[in-house]
Design a protein around this nucleic acid. Structure first.
Length: 111
DNA sequence: ATCATGACGTACG
DNA sequence: TCGTACGCCATGA
């Protein structure tokens, strides 16, 4: 029988992915924000979960940015792609390459 | 088991 | 504003 215990056994990674999947196009969430929603999860775990994603994933990883509203770190494979995808979805960047979080931040991942 | 690393965040000087 | 230090804890050597 399907029990609630089954749902409780979803891994932290799956919880993170589940939240990210709910971010609509043209919106973003921060690592710390997701970490705050998922119990016993730190921002690093969110970043690590993103790094563990594969190509064929259905998780919109590009909608996750750091607390400054920028694409994370200096360079990593897919950084430019992240900019492209966000621009395609209508997210506007300032001249500094920063996203205005007060406009584009998505406040809820698991209503 | 320990050590180093990491798509991060906050605190502090 | 910027750099450094530390917390966080999964993952791999």
């Amino acid at each position: 029988m399907i029990t609630e215990a089954v749902k409780m056994e979803i891994s932290t990674y799956q919880k993170i992915y589940n939240i990210v999947r709910k971010i609509p196009a043209g919106r973003v969430m921060t690592y710390g924000q997701i970490a705050g929603i998922v119990d016993r999860c730190s921002a690093r775990m969110v970043g690590y979960a993103m790094a563990a994603l594969k190509e064929g994933t259905d998780v919109p990883w590009h909608r996750v940015v750091n607390s400054r509203g920028m694409v994370s770190l200096q360079e990593y494979a897919g950084r430019d792609l992240q900019y492209e995808l966000l621009k395609t979805e209508g997210v506007r960047f300032s001249q500094n390459g920063v996203i205005d979080l007060s406009v584009y931040r998505w406040e809820n991942g698991d209503p």
